[in-house]
Simulated assay, not measured.
Amino acid sequence: MATLVIATKNAGKAREYGQLFAPFGIEVKTLADFPAFKINENGQTFEQNALIKARTAVDHLGLPVIADDSGLVVDALAGAPGVHSARYAGDHDDAANNAKLLRALTGVPAVNRTAHFHTTIVALKPDGAKLITEGRVDGTIRQQPRGNNGFGYDPLFIPREYPDKTMAELTIDQKNQISHRGRAMRALMAKFEGWWQA
């Protein structure tokens, strides 16, 4: 059985990809299945970071890899937190990140609190064959967090498709239909077979 590595240690992400690739007879593994190695995510864009993750993993493992990078882009903050979204106020501290974002937007009126979530996915083979897809969801940033179904900046983000709800108030199905990651993954699956068989 052919093996495809997802450049994450997140078991939930691995399950999600595993279901997508099951019809292709592909065994999905993650970085947690291999000895640890360092990935230096120092890119300036989501695509650069996803490529760094993918290339580093391909070089270490000699297997096809899928990597992604995501974040929140706030127009009034010149695109911040952007590629630093997960570590905006420290290391993967959602509450601190949200508090810092709200402080940064103090005094910014609702009409100027536009933002979008972005995901770039990179699929890379040892021979260099590459597939890149993107997804985004547009919306605005609330004054206070609301909802318990999400993570990261979800409690502050009101998607355009649901103007009376935050991402953290949507059901899993509603979120998957509009989410940046969902859109990037659907774009990936539309082209995946051609890349995998090439």
Rank of each mutant, 00 (worst) to 15 (best):
E134F: 03
G139K: 02
R160S: 14
A123H: 09
D164H: 15
L102D: 03
R103Y: 00
V111W: 02
H116K: 09
A115P: 04
H116N: 09
E134V: 09
R142I: 01
L156A: 05
L131T: 11
F117L: 10
T114A: 04
T106V: 03
P109R: 03
L102Y: 02
A104F: 00
I132Q: 08
G147D: 11
N112I: 00
L131C: 08
A115F: 04
T140H: 07
M167S: 15
T133I: 11
P109H: 03
P155T: 07
I141A: 08
T166A: 14
I141R: 07
E134I: 00
T140I: 08
A115H: 01
I132V: 15
G107K: 00
T114W: 00
V111L: 10
T166M: 12
K165D: 04
F151K: 14
K130S: 11
T133S: 13
I141M: 09
Y162E: 08
D164Q: 15
G107T: 00
H116L: 09
K130L: 14
T120P: 05
P109G: 07
L131G: 06
V111M: 03
L124R: 11
A115D: 02
F157G: 06
R136E: 11
R113L: 05
V122A: 08
D154S: 08
I158L: 01
D154F: 08
I132H: 04
I141H: 06
L170H: 10
K125C: 14
K100N: 13
L102V: 04
G128F: 06
Q143E: 12
L101E: 10
V111I: 14
P159Y: 05
P163L: 11
E169I: 13
T133M: 12
I121N: 02
P126F: 11
K125I: 11
K165T: 03
D138T: 06
V137C: 10
T140M: 10
P163S: 12
Y162F: 15
T166C: 15
D138L: 03
E134K: 10
I141S: 05
K125F: 14
Y153E: 06
T120F: 04
A129M: 11
R146A: 15
G135Y: 02
G152N: 07
A104S: 07
A123I: 02
R160W: 05
A168F: 07
L105M: 06
R113V: 04
T114R: 08
E134D: 13
G150Y: 11
F151N: 12
T140P: 03
G150A: 14
F151H: 13
G152A: 10
D154Q: 08
L124C: 12
G107A: 01
E169V: 13
L131W: 07
A168H: 08
D164V: 13
P145Q: 06
I121L: 14
D154K: 05
T106P: 00
R142D: 04
T133W: 07
L105S: 05
Y162H: 15
L124E: 10
K125G: 07
G152W: 01
R160Q: 14
V111Q: 13
G152I: 05
